[in-house]
Simulated scan of single mutants.
Amino acid sequence: MDPTLLAVLSIFGGVAVTAAAGLLGAWIQGRREHKKWLRERRFEAYTRSYTLLQNWRALKADTDVMIAESKRVEHSTDPADVATRKRVNAELQGVKDRMAVVFADVTECESEMQLLGPASVQHAINALTMGVVQGVDNDTWSDLAMTYAKTTRKVMSIR
């Protein structure tokens, strides 16, 4: 073979191998970056959803206490009870307004989680949400929260 042709083929072969290695490296780096991005978004969505559900649960408990107090003095004409009823109703409206904001945030988070996946985490957060809506007892809430924590840890590869 002609030495000039051999030199040219060696140069172009080296360039082709270098280009292929560069493309492979870029592809691998792109996958790494995507996995990192997905992990960060999932972590944010998972922790935010859990925190919002805890807040919503606490607000719901406050609301239940206020409603019971309002019903206790509902038909009373005693001036102290009338004042209590007005105060509780005003506080109750504030708590309901905060609950509406938290509920909107929970819905937004659950939408994010549905996009980020996986389905196992979505099922666990849905169970927690239903726990808040149904007003489950503390033991049931703890069980649901533990299931959610285990599911998210598994997905996030947290030991």
Rank of each mutant, 00 (worst) to 15 (best):
V15S: 03
R85N: 02
D81L: 00
I28F: 14
V106Y: 02
T63Y: 04
D97I: 09
K36H: 13
R48P: 08
D97G: 05
F43D: 15
P79E: 00
L38F: 11
E44T: 13
G25Y: 10
V106K: 06
V15W: 05
A19Y: 09
G13Q: 02
T84P: 00
W27C: 04
I67E: 07
E108C: 03
G94M: 07
V73T: 05
V8N: 04
F43I: 14
D78T: 06
T47C: 05
D105C: 02
D105L: 13
R42N: 11
H34S: 14
W27G: 10
G13E: 01
E69W: 02
D97A: 15
T77V: 04
K60E: 07
P79F: 00
N89M: 08
S76A: 02
V65A: 07
R98A: 07
A21F: 02
T84H: 07
V65W: 04
T63G: 01
Y46G: 06
T63M: 09
T107P: 03
L9G: 04
W37M: 15
R32G: 06
R98S: 11
F43A: 15
V102T: 08
R31T: 06
S49E: 09
E40R: 15
W37P: 02
Q54S: 08
R32M: 13
T77A: 08
A68E: 12
A90T: 13
D105A: 12
K60L: 05
F43Y: 15
I67Y: 03
R39G: 10
A58C: 00
V106M: 05
Y50S: 09
E40M: 14
E33Y: 05
R42H: 10
R48D: 14
V17R: 02
I28C: 05
K36W: 10
A45Y: 07
K96L: 06
T18L: 15
A26C: 05
I11Y: 13
Y46P: 11
D64E: 12
L52T: 03
R42I: 08
V15T: 06
W27P: 05
V65D: 06
Y50D: 08
A83P: 01
P79Y: 01
T18Q: 04
Y50R: 13
N89W: 01
V8H: 09
D64N: 09
V73H: 01
T47R: 10
R72H: 08
I11C: 07
A61G: 07
R39H: 15
R72E: 06
A61N: 10
L9N: 14
K36N: 10
F12T: 13
E33V: 12
R48S: 15
E44V: 11
D97N: 14
R57M: 04
